[in-house]
């Protein structure tokens, strides 16, 4: 652990985010979590897609892949399969993860890969200058929907639990301590963990610190995190599909499965079972000599 975790993980370049962007909090929460766990910069792979949020690995000196819009999870899975010893964190936006990358999200969660996904949920597309995203509220006036978004927002937590993620958390970037707690818990979890961080875009939607008052910490209420029914019920409390600015926002660990086996561990088992069936390509070719049957 160092005194200056930001320096330990920084590559010396100033992040290119707007000043006052809520994403800064998430970045420093993440590096503090790395530091507390003494994860070396070259010992963790931070993989992202495209968007303001996805710029994150470019500000670090960690292993990192700034991939394509919507595609951090396939690259993350490749990295996990190749180097099971290196943990993978995915930094992504609500558009990146849930619009263009939705299929990858559902399947990475379902397969329960040991990956920590941090979704910076600003509930709009920031990098392309303000369009409605899957999580934008009904009526959101994006540049391509000046008449107001016509469809309901997607509930990330519900989708994640339904898809098979083994840990689902929600935090708000305005509360750094809680955000850090959630990211830390997700890093410590073996299996697919999603941290949805509510992180409004200051440039297009202004500071929205008042939403902090609506936060309802599930851990203060003795929520049973490993009870799927109550997890689904809490996740389903959509905080503003009805555009109610007073609606309560449940945060904290919403779901954490006790016994879901992750994909990575099963790969190990498959390899153990199959090792040395054939010890060389030559041995396989021997089996393919004429007359050896099928």
């Amino acid at each position: 652990m160092s005194n200056r975790p930001h320096e330990r993980y920084s590559n010396g370049r100033k992040p290119s985010w707007c000043s006052g962007c809520s994403y800064f909090t998430v970045l420093s929460a993440l590096t503090e979590c790395f530091d507390e766990r003494d994860i070396a910069p070259e010992g963790v792979n931070v993989i992202s897609g495209i968007g303001c949020s996805s710029r994150l690995p470019l500000f670090l000196n960690c292993l990192g892949m700034h991939t394509l819009h919507g595609r951090p999870l396939p690259a993350a899975i490749g990295a996990r399969l190749a180097r099971p010893d290196i943990p993978v964190v995915v930094a992504t936006g609500d558009g990146d993860l849930l619009s263009i990358g939705a299929a990858h999200f559902v399947h990475a969660a379902r397969k329960n890969f040991d990956i920590t996904v941090i979704c910076f949920d600003n509930r709009m597309y920031a990098m392309t200058k303000n369009q409605a995203s899957p999580t934008s509220p009904v009526g959101y006036k994006g540049s391509l929907t000046p008449y107001g978004k016509l469809s309901a927002p997607l509930n990330i937590a519900e989708l994640a639990i339904g898809s098979g993620a083994s840990m689902v958390c929600r935090a708000c970037a305005y509360d750094k301590a809680h955000t850090k707690k959630m990211i830390g818990a997700a890093l410590d979890h073996r299996g697919f963990s999603l941290v949805e961080v509510i992180a409004p875009c200051r440039t297009f939607n202004g500071q929205q610190r008042e939403i902090l008052e609506r936060m309802d910490d599930l851990q203060d209420r003795g929520h049973e995190v490993d009870n799927r029914e109550s997890a689904m019920r809490e996740a389903a409390r959509v905080y503003d599909s009805d555009n109610n600015p007073k609606a309560v926002i449940p945060i904290g660990v919403i779901w954490k499965s006790g016994g879901m086996i992750c994909f990575d561990d099963q790969v190990g088992r498959v390899l153990d079972e199959n090792t040395r069936k054939h010890s060389s390509v030559d041995e396989i070719l021997d089996d393919l000599k004429p007359g050896r049957g099928w």
């Binding site: 595609r71 396939p74 899975i77 490749g78 190749a82 299929a103 990858h104």
Partner: peptide, 14 residues
């Protein structure tokens, strides 16, 4: 898309 993404992620990881 995922198949080539996994391929790229693996090569990146050596």
């Amino acid at each position: 898309i995922s198949a080539i993404g996994v391929t790229a992620g693996a090569w990146y990881s050596g």
